[in-house]
Design a protein around this nucleic acid. Structure first.
Lengths: 341, 341
DNA sequence: CATGTGTGCTAATACGTATTGGCAAGCTGC
DNA sequence: GCAGCTTGCCAATACGTATTAGCACACATG
């Protein structure tokens, strides 16, 4: 019967109880494959450990092994459902593999402080959004195992979705519905995923012989508020100039745009078709439901964690191939065939 | 100029460079107040540490101090915006105080495994939702500094919102609009906050001489899906039996209900007034916007972390008073005066 | 000059685990 | 009977920091 004792039990306590030395306990419990331990001894040690409720002190273990069995996760904003999903996926893998996940919400700020704190904790790797990584001073990540959320940048591997396809799928869907006058809204900031979504969208339009006028390219933060403001600007255009379909860099923007249309009496999808990207849970809660491109956010987090946890890829032994996960168009109610005006 | 060296710099390295012994470095850098160090020595040590880019190894420090400067956070589901907010608040405080936040998403499961892992990491405290704590085997939290999210349970302090007032505010708002036929939807599970929201709601109805029939008390998980199903059941009632106003245990349910009404053509608020609870960001994105009771989720997380970080409250020296944070009714578009039928 | 009194530093040790080298005992083979 | 091997264990040490006890010195005091 395992005792749940309050006082901390060490390998020394176990050793005493089993009548062996401390190193022997360590040999048995750390399952060192090259350890030679008699079967009887092994059993006595395990028995004693169980009885005392021994639990290894990972700080001590980390100190000598130079490995802390913990990962850092730096996200731009945990309240963004996309990153909450990423975190959720990363936590799952980390936890399953015996790693702790140290959460850092940079809340839009720089992440140098977080990085330094993580270093002090001797983390085995860090998952960080590419925008944060790019904003760091040179060398800030030296010596760390890094996986980027978003495209790789040469120095570090990254896990991302196929953003260009996302844009293309949105465009092709809207083109197929007969739309000819498009707008795009997204941040100017240097986030690769957003750039690629835009590029994929624009390229598909070009392929159809269409373009995107400057006034129909709205720059703003990829947030609900950003979406509302961009949409307000579009709605302020004179009727012939107004787009009939809008692709938004992510669902938060799209939901903001959606809301703005509702507020201003612009009917979605009758007056305007709207496509988002990410497929966050909320996309199904608005009416009409948001057509969007589904991105496997949890899987992105999970894969990023797995790259850092997998002994075959850590330490650059085998440079992990970066991962580009497929996306899928999800047609819902916010898009409809272009109506004659 | 601080060098960013890849190799780890220890106090020994700093000592050598400054021409002093390792303990002296430790005395200087740990800012031990009772340490007597000559000003010149102190400066040389700091200079050397800066030049070498010294950063303390928190594993080693934790080992000897018996303190890891890290907190565990166990949430039922990170994808629930309420808990994402709690996590965000807790992370902010932890980070500001030099603590790491070890994130555990129990994803609806038991949390014993997570607790054990956190113990091994010698965490200084754990923030856990009360439902998870209650589901743990006896003694599973012994010897830990615990703060519950949700009401305290005698053994541990908790940080929560004034849930009974939330229910009462919702009821009074609806009563003031002339409603007389109410429904409530919420989980049967033993989450104190949800029980108190329900109780506050029912008590306020009673005070007005009204009650809640069994058929108008819908049990279901506090999720979007749960809200949709409960709403479907309510909509299936014959017209005279149907409520004119519904209070939902949280916003996720309310949004599910909101969506279900849109799907079934029940007009909100003309046919049905809807009140949620939490005031998550999404509440403002649906049309009509959701009337709800605002709960300071981030503040809850922040306070919980502060209780565990504050030297005046840790270790039970001064048992921290539990905190009950005020809530506020936010009237939006999902509620309206009762119409004659 | 002997005695006390701070001051500024260091030697030694502890924290709990992992690892290295080696010792003793039991074999094998000749 | 001795060299050589294997097996099973342990002594010693390392990881990087914090802390305790105490040393050497200067200075003041009698």
């Amino acid at each position: 019967m395992a005792k749940r004792s309050n006082a901390k039990v060490t390998t020394h306590d176990v050793a005493k109880r089993a009548g062996v030395s401390q190193p022997t306990v360590s040999l048995v419990l750390s399952r060192n494959p090259k350890a030679r331990v008699a079967e009887g001894t092994r059993e006595r040690v395990i028995q004693a450990a169980t009885e005392l409720g021994y639990r290894p002190n990972l700080l001590a273990r980390g100190l000598v092994r130079r490995k802390s069995f913990s990962l850092g996760l730096i996200v731009p904003d945990l309240k963004d459902p996309f990153f909450a999903d990423v975190a959720s996926g990363a936590e799952r893998v980390a936890s399953d593999e015996g790693f702790a996940l140290l959460l850092c919400d940079r809340r839009g700020n720089g992440s140098l402080r977080h990085i330094e704190a993580l270093r002090g904790r001797q983390i085995d790797g860090v998952i960080i959004d590419a925008a944060a990584a790019a904003a760091l001073p040179a060398g800030a990540l030296d010596g760390l195992d890094v996986v980027l959320i978003d495209q790789p940048d040469g120095a570090w591997p990254g896990v991302a979705s196929d953003a260009e396809s996302a844009g293309r799928l949105a465009a092709e869907h809207l083109l197929g519905l007969g739309h000819r006058r498009f707008a795009f809204m997204g941040p100017a900031a240097d986030v690769h995923t957003f750039r690629m979504r835009e590029r994929g969208f624009v390229k598909a339009l070009r392929a159809a012989g269409l373009g995107l006028e400057a006034s129909l390219l709205r720059r703003g933060p990829a947030t609900v508020t950003g979406g509302m403001e961009s949409m307000r600007a579009l709605n302020a255009l004179s009727a012939p100039e107004r787009p009939t379909a809008v692709f938004c860099a992510n669902d938060l923007m799209a939901l903001g745009a959606h809301k703005q249309c509702a507020t201003q009496g612009v009917r979605v999808p009758a007056d305007l078709s709207l496509v988002g990207c990410d497929d966050i849970e909320m996309a199904r809660l608005v009416t009409p439901e948001l057509t969007t491109v589904s991105v496997p956010a949890r899987e992105i987090g999970a894969r990023a964690a797995r790259l850092l946890v997998d002994p075959r890829t850590v330490g650059g032994v085998a440079t992990p191939r970066s991962r580009m996960l497929p996306v899928k168009l999800v047609v819902r109610g916010s898009t409809a065939p272009q109506q004659a005006r």
